[in-house]
């Protein structure tokens, strides 16, 4: 009897957490999250572009990659908002695309408790690749979204 009650409580708890997580993802106001990021551009950077990557967690780990062309000698700020992620997503930034023999990791987002906004400023480069590794989840209803904003500043780095 005691075991049955424990099992029931556990099932209800898992159900509640999953439902709450789905709701978090669904109820996210992406525009507001972008606005939070946009504030982080001031005063030196201007808004350039953005990309919201929406996904459903699966029973397999997923990988998604974005190519960001940059102009040498200019300054850029990458901003990520992780508020809409019910389960953390790994964010790595690379110098080359997947499969390239000279691919080098430039940055890994180090998730901190209670913090949702993260910043990265690349060194001089032409193209940069952002990779999201979405962990597996047994809850296939679970959805999330990663919000990315790119800012630029012309004349940021003096050319040689």
């Amino acid at each position: 009897m005691k075991n049955k009650i424990s099992y029931l409580i556990l099932t209800l708890a898992i159900g509640f957490i999953s439902t709450a997580a789905v709701q978090i993802a669904t109820e996210c106001d992406i525009t507001s999250l972008k606005k939070e990021l946009k504030k982080e551009l001031k005063p030196n950077f201007k808004y350039d572009s953005s990309k919201t990557t929406r996904f459903t967690y699966k029973t397999k780990t997923q990988s998604k990659e974005m190519e960001v062309p940059l102009f040498m000698g200019e300054k850029y700020r990458f901003l990520f908002n992780t508020k809409c992620l019910p389960v953390d997503v790994k964010v790595d930034i690379y110098s080359k695309p997947k499969g390239h023999k000279k691919r080098k990791k430039l940055y890994t987002l180090d998730k901190k408790e209670g913090r949702d906004v993260y910043t990265y400023e690349p060194e001089k480069s032409r193209k940069t690749y952002i990779n999201y590794t979405i962990p597996e989840s047994s809850d296939e209803e679970l959805r999330g979204a990663m919000v990315f904003v790119l800012g630029y500043r012309i004349g940021g780095i003096k050319k040689k």
């Binding site: 997923q62 974005m66 062309p69």
Partner: peptide, 20 residues
């Protein structure tokens, strides 16, 4: 690992190009 075949391309804004 399920890898997405499609790369997503982030294109710059016309404003950035004009400023350059």
């Amino acid at each position: 690992m399920e890898e997405s075949d499609d790369m997503t391309y982030i294109l710059p804004s016309p404003l950035q190009i004009a400023e350059l």
